[in-house]
Design a protein around this nucleic acid. Structure first.
Lengths: 208, 208
DNA sequence: GCACGACTGGACTGTCAAGTCCAATCGATG
DNA sequence: CATCGATTGGACTTGACAGTCCAGTCGTGC
C-alpha cells in the first residue's frame, strides 16, 4: 500500500495553474447544468478549449475532477452568500440573508443548490465525494451556528436554545425549499421553508 | 402531428402485465440505489430476468420506463406512510408520523427519499419527469394539507394559519432533512428538521 | 386444432465516453 | 543557447450502452 499519489505534477507554472482552473470552472458549470453523469469530458474539453491530454495531465481521472468541482462549488456557494454568512447574528441579518438566497435562486432560474444536487447524485456510490460534501455542509452549518452562538452569548437567544440544532434545521429548510422550488418551478416553497426556519429561530429568542 | 402513441400494445394478458410490472419494480430498485444515469437497461434486464426485446415491447424507450418508475416510486412512498398520511389531523398523529419517517429512513440505510433523488436528478433536462414529480409532491403536500385543514375546521389550528403553506414547509423539512441525513450518514438532521416542522405547526395551534 | 396477436430470445448496430499513448512545443534556468 | 520538465495536440483503443431487427414460441378465441 504505497501512498500512490499518481496524479498532479509536483509544480505548476502560472500558465498551468490557469489552465487547470479553467477546466474546473467549465466542469463546474456543465455539471451544475446537467449533472455529473450527463457531463462528458469531451464537453468539458470543448467548454474550456483544452485537449484530452491536458485533462489527464491535471487530473488522474474524472472522479478527481469531480472532487475538485465540489471544492469549487463550495467556494462559490460561500462567496454568493457573502457578506451575509459572516454575521448571521440578529433577526434582521437573518431576514436579509433569506432575501438574498431567494434572489440567488431566482437568478439561477431555480436550478437549485449546486451542493445539494451534487450531494443527491453522489452521496451513494462515490464515498470520497460524499465525505467532501458532508464537510461542505458542515462548514455551512457552522457559519450559521456561529451567528446563533453569538446571539446566545449576547442573551438574545435563550440559554436553552441549541445553536447547532437550530443551524441544522435552517440548513435543512434551505435544501428542502430549494429542491421543491426546482421541481415546481416556483420560488414559493423556498420562501415558505426559509420563513419557517427563521420563525423557528425567532421562537427561541428572549423577549425583545 | 398525429397522436403518435407508438408504444404499449393495446391489450395486455395477465402474464404480460406481470412481466411489465416486474420490469418496473426492478428498474425502480436499481434507480433508487444508483440513480437513473448509472442504471443501464442491461442491469434492468438482468435484475428482472427479461430480454431486451421485452423491454422495448413494453416501453418505447428508457425515458418511458423512467416515467413509470416515478409513478411506481410515488405509490411506494405513499404506501410506506400508510396509514399515517391519511389522518395527519392532530399533534400526536404528526409525531407518530415523524417517528415512522425516521424509522423508514433508517431502514433504507439513509439512502434518502426516492422522489427527492429522482427530482434532483431529473428536474432539469427531462421536463415530463419534472412535471410528474411536481405532481407527486403536490399530492404529498395535499395529504398533509388535508389533515391540517381538518384541524383548522375543528378550531385546533388558528384561523389565521394557512394549511397549504404549513404543508409546504413540512414537506420542505422532510426533503432537506433527508438530503442532509443521506450526505452525513446520520439520521439526526432528519429528526431535527422534522421537529422544527412539527414545532412550526404547533405554534399555529390554538391553546390546548 | 388453427390462426392470430401477444409475447419472448438474443444477436447486431451505431454512437459515445473514458482513458491511453506518443510526439511535439514552450519556457525558465544555467 | 542548450536542457529538462511542464505543457499541449490529437489520434487511438476499449468498452458500455441505447436502440433495432427478426425469427421463434405461447395461449386464447373461434
Amino acid at each position: 500500500m504505497l501512498p500512490n499519489q499518481k496524479s498532479e505534477p509536483r509544480s505548476l507554472t502560472a500558465r498551468g495553474a490557469a489552465t487547470r482552473s479553467r477546466i474546473v470552472d467549465a466542469a463546474a458549470d456543465l455539471i451544475y447544468a446537467h449533472g455529473v453523469d450527463r457531463t462528458s469530458l469531451d464537453d468539458v474539453m470543448a467548454a474550456s478549449s483544452v485537449s484530452k491530454s491536458q485533462l489527464y495531465h491535471y487530473f488522474a481521472d474524472k472522479d478527481a475532477l469531480v472532487l475538485e468541482v465540489i471544492a469549487r462549488q463550495t467556494e462559490r456557494v460561500f462567496e454568493a452568500q457573502t457578506p451575509h454568512l459572516e454575521a448571521l447574528d440578529s433577526l434582521p441579518a437573518l431576514k436579509l440573508w433569506r432575501n438574498a438566497i431567494v434572489r440567488l435562486n431566482k437568478a439561477a432560474h431555480g436550478k437549485g443548490c449546486p451542493l445539494g444536487t451534487l450531494a443527491s447524485e453522489l452521496a451513494n456510490g462515490f464515498e470520497p465525494a460524499r465525505k467532501c460534501l458532508a464537510d461542505s455542509f458542515a462548514m455551512w452549518r457552522d457559519r450559521i451556528e456561529q451567528g446563533l452562538t453569538k446571539m446566545r452569548e449576547r442573551g438574545e437567544l435563550a440559554a436553552s436554545a441549541d445553536p447547532y440544532e437550530l443551524a441544522v434545521a435552517v440548513l435543512s429548510a434551505i435544501q428542502g425549499g430549494l429542491l421543491l422550488a426546482k421541481t415546481t418551478h416556483s420560488s414559493r416553497p423556498l420562501e415558505i421553508a426559509l420563513d419557517m426556519a427563521i420563525d423557528h429561530v425567532a421562537r427561541h429568542m428572549t423577549k425583545a
